[in-house]
Design a protein around this nucleic acid. Structure first.
Lengths: 336, 336
DNA sequence: CTGTTAGCGCCTTCAC
DNA sequence: GTGAAGGCGCTAACAG
């Protein structure tokens, strides 16, 4: 494998000059630059990023630690991150935590060993501990999707409260008065914010919030099934469901379908996050769509800006809007 | 940041002894080992993988170069790769080529610079050139999903021909005689193999293969739409479609739907690759399902085995079976 | 504009 | 079982 010294010799210059040409750092005359570039090309030289990272303490690597790449929402985020990173000459390494703090812990150790420049973190817990530990090692962090307690940090997230509010307002406007709110784990900020948006809508409409109509469970199909099942057995069940994410919505649909009930004829359904648009039937579900790709892209941009900046930037929160897309899963009700 | 020397000092040993403890290499007495481990823990020591990689020439990193992580098939492969790699202490870096050789080229250069130990490659072209160049740099490669010409290499792929054959046989058994084969780009091995499976089924059934009933286009929804459209305008259109991947199937469904035609009432449809199982309606499409996760897992396993092996292993081809799942998109025809 | 020196943190080699 | 020396390939800091 050819080294910087080989190129230097071939071009008749010192290794550091080759370094300056390859990195566009410092002054090099055009003539020298040309000679070095020719030599590098002739020898098929590829700089060793391990060596340069060891010396310069910058690895041009960022990590994306998320819950599960298999969820289409996160897939889109990951694609945004990868596009943003590779166009800025960063490489992405990624890991799935499956919401497990133990797995997150294991990844963290790996990232420290690799001396990544920065981390995009979807925290498995609501504490800022992980962020603090990264910062102690001088690894910049941008938190994605969720808030964390007790620490100031850059955050890039969709506007959960506004999105949930829009969905609930939409259901209310169509006459629904008993709306079942099916949320995610209670200790994750997005779950609480989506419930908060729901509450705000009901209160603004002067409707009492019934505790039995709010449930928390996993952000999964199974979670949605459990919650829908529970609500169907209420004395006075809801006329509409507000699902806090796409998988929960699928669980609701499956539960209703299994019970011989139809959407929107028997129950209305509105959901947070879109489903993959490559499903067979034309899109049907009324949703509040977060800009997943842009979330990923924004997060890398902020991280890279922070890495490139001389002075330390103030910590900011980037809240991207959520868009209400009305399709066909909600019907108007007239009486109740 | 604490180094191996700090730990050595703290434990009263030489740096090399710490190295031996951390890597489980060479003999270390239990007492010394305990002292070193205590020191490492006390100092929060995380070995610098850049430094160790520079010296040892092994980075514990593998790359996954695929077409587009956004396709649920590839997402599942990626998850399999990540799980397999992280359990063996490898980190995965990934890149999307979007089937572009230029992008693939750019990634390759990045991977060389990072001195990755191995590459899992979904080649953007059918030539073995990329594999050869990696091998020239002593980077082990396992090709995923596709075959390449002119070079021996490990390949892990689903059995395209068998899967297509099973789908075609199924359609034939239900009485279909005119089956439209909608395949991917003609220069990708899986496209040709799926057509080959289709041909074999027809020939075994003694049915002439009509050239107008075979088309090649992109593995996308748009490709599926174009091909379906073309076949609908034939003098005698097919009664069934065989889509060579999931996106093409979606394109077919959309085209038929737009034309007011229904599946399976008006046309039958069978497809290669499943759709994400989180679509709203219960799974409907009859498919030949490749074990995507296992493909990824198998590929890492082979790569890691190759990296760990003293002698050079023979190049093998791992062909995983494809499973026919009969659902509701195909109906029986009686006459023609 | 270009070069010299030194060292990043670790592991290979060889010695004891 | 343990250690000393040296170098992996690169660049920061300082000269000139």
């Amino acid at each position: 494998m050819t080294t910087i010294r080989d190129v230097a010799k071939h071009a008749g210059v010192a290794p550091i000059t080759v370094s300056r040409v390859m990195n566009n750092s410092g002054y090099v005359s055009d003539a020298t630059r040309a000679r070095v570039e020719a030599a590098a090309a002739a020898l098929n030289y590829e700089p060793n990023l391990l060596a340069s990272g060891l010396k310069s303490r910058r690895t041009q690597t960022i990590a994306l630690v998320l819950t599960d790449i298999t969820n289409p929402f996160w897939t889109a985020v990951a694609r945004g991150v990868e596009d943003g990173a590779s166009s800025r000459n960063y490489t992405v390494i990624f890991g799935n935590t499956d919401e497990s703090e133990a797995k997150q812990e294991r990844y963290l150790s790996m990232l420290l060993r690799r001396r990544v420049d920065g981390v995009l973190l979807v925290p498995a817990s609501h504490t800022g501990e992980m962020v603090g530990r990264l910062r102690a090692r001088e690894i910049e962090t941008v938190v994605l999707d969720r808030r964390v307690d007790d620490i100031e940090v850059d955050i890039v997230r969709g506007n959960s409260e506004q999105g949930a509010r829009a969905l609930a307002d939409h259901l209310l406007a169509l006459g629904h008065r008993r709306i079942g709110m099916l949320s995610g784990p209670a200790d994750i900020s997005v779950s609480r914010e989506r419930v908060a948006g729901y509450r705000a809508a009901l209160e603004a409409a002067g409707i009492a919030v019934a505790p039995t109509l709010i449930r928390y469970d996993a952000f999964t199909v199974e979670g949605g099934q459990r919650m829908a099942q529970a609500m169907l057995t209420l004395d006075s069940p809801p006329t509409a469901f507000l699902a806090a994410n796409n998988f929960i919505a699928v669980g609701v649909m499956r539960t209703l379908h299994a019970a011989g009930l139809r959407v929107p004829d028997d129950f209305s359904l509105a959901a947070f996050d879109d489903l993959p648009d490559n499903c067979l039937q034309p899109p049907f579900l009324t949703t509040a769509v977060q800009p997943a790709y842009e979330l990923g892209m924004t997060a890398v941009e902020r991280l890279v800006a922070r890495l490139a900046s001389e002075e330390t930037l103030p910590y900011e929160e980037f809240v991207l809007p959520t868009e209400l897309i009305v399709r066909k899963s909600v019907r108007q009700v007239c009486e109740e």
